Simulated assay, not measured.
Amino acid sequence: MSKALVLGASGATGRLLVKLLLDKGVQVIALVRNAGSLANIIDSNGQLDIVEAEISTIPDQELAKLLAGCTSVFSCLGHNISFKGIYGHPRRLVTDAVAKVARAVELVQTDHPIKMVLMNTTGNSNRDIPEKPPFSQRLVVALLRLILPPHVDNEQAADFLRVQIGQDNHKLEWVVVRPDGLIDEEQVSDYKIYASPIRNPIFDAGKTSRVNVADFMSELVLDSDLWEKWKGKMPVIYNI
């Protein structure tokens, strides 16, 4: 049976991901600040283990213990939409979490690389390939880097995987999932995956339901062909 660690499990997308993983027969360790945030998750098979801890303070050795036996780790971490959440600390919440996972993975004895799926944004370009956003988008993104720390955090988190982990790491493999404008829907619907954005995420954003993001993230680690197709890449997901 597959076993996954989910960071940011109490968030809007993280909760959906936990539910979908459980529905698909995956054993889940959910790392949350407050166990009550997942009180309504139905765990009919006893496959959900809720751990109360903050990723920013948990020691690497403790995180490694949680990762032991896991085949995958998901990050749905994000900054709260409030003044404190945007401009307060930790400003590198996602980046520091990704780096901590990478350090913890080095402490885990495993015969196969652990798969990491990072939820990100179409506002972040994949600098491994020749993506050429229009000037209007590049201008706005440059301004966002100056005034919105969470955007910089998203960019740096993806860059850590691209540059520090790279394509040939024998302990950690990764995919960075980039949804466009997030919306709430109850059920998984049809969606399409692209290597790069097909719309301007600033002035002509598409729509991506959170439940579709969660479904694609879960399928990445359950479908070996899908993983091989997108491993080391930053796929973009849109609702159809």
Rank of each mutant, 00 (worst) to 15 (best):
D49R: 14
D43R: 12
S37G: 12
L17V: 03
I42Y: 09
A12D: 13
G36S: 09
S44M: 09
V32T: 03
A53T: 11
R33Y: 07
R15S: 12
S37N: 14
L48D: 10
K24T: 01
A39S: 15
I42S: 15
S44W: 05
S37M: 10
I29W: 03
N34E: 13
I42H: 14
R33H: 14
L22F: 02
K24H: 11
K24L: 08
A53C: 13
G36A: 06
L38N: 12
N34M: 09
I41P: 11
D49K: 15
I41E: 11
L20Q: 04
L48W: 10
Q27D: 14
N45I: 05
G14L: 03
T57W: 06
Q27F: 07
V18A: 04
G25A: 02
I42G: 10
R15A: 10
R15M: 07
V28R: 04
E52Y: 08
V26P: 02
G14E: 04
R15Y: 07
L31G: 02
I55F: 05
D23F: 02
I50D: 04
L22A: 00
N34R: 14
K19D: 11
N45V: 08
D23I: 01
N40F: 10
Q47T: 13
N45Q: 14
I42W: 07
I50S: 05
A35K: 14
D49A: 11
T57Y: 11
L22E: 02
T13D: 00
V51A: 02
E52L: 06
V28T: 09
T13F: 00
A35T: 06
